[in-house]
């Protein structure tokens, strides 16, 4: 990495004030993988969204080049720590489109909430059951 030539104390200082020396490179990497994912998704008319393909591709890249992890770490964790914020604009869209429910509002809401609770239950219980069958302890 480029910071290898810098004095250790300077690196420690920068870490302390929270500067990410890799930020621009990290954003480049994330955008390049998203771009590659979008190109594959659209180019081959795949049903998997571009960012999900980008996720898989970056994961493979991390396996091949483990040093990449430290370049993207601060930026990636920063984005993921505020993932909730990123859903707000789409959420506001929900309020704007509540009219699309028509007369089916209550039925849709009940189906959605009950089904989501059951899906969480089914998945969590299946996971725990199989983990126990495999003799894994709880973490």
């Amino acid at each position: 990495m480029a910071c290898a030539a810098q004095p250790r104390i300077w690196i420690a200082f920068r870490a302390k004030i929270g500067t990410d020396p890799h930020m621009i490179r990290a954003i480049c990497i994330l955008l390049l993988f998203q771009l590659a994912g979008e190109s594959l998704s659209r180019g081959f008319d795949l049903f998997v969204p571009g960012p999900v393909i980008g996720l898989a591709a970056l994961f493979i890249a991390l396996l091949i080049f483990p040093k990449l992890a430290e370049v993207i770490r601060v930026a990636a964790n920063g984005l993921l720590a505020h993932l909730s914020l990123l859903f707000v604009p789409a959420g506001v869209g929900v309020i704007a489109h509540l009219g699309t429910f028509g007369t089916n509002g209550i039925g849709l809401i009940v189906a959605l909430i009950v089904s989501t609770a059951l899906a969480i239950l089914a998945a969590v219980l299946t996971f725990v059951l199989f983990a126990r069958l495999m003799g894994q302890r709880h973490e």
């Binding site: 996720l55 970056l58 994961f59």
Partner: peptide, 19 residues
């Protein structure tokens, strides 16, 4: 939309915790 746009890179960033 600038906030909304970041959903894409954030999804790609999920590769790090996975790794």
């Amino acid at each position: 939309q600038f906030v909304h746009f970041m959903l894409g890179p954030a999804t790609v960033a999920l590769a790090l915790p996975l790794y």
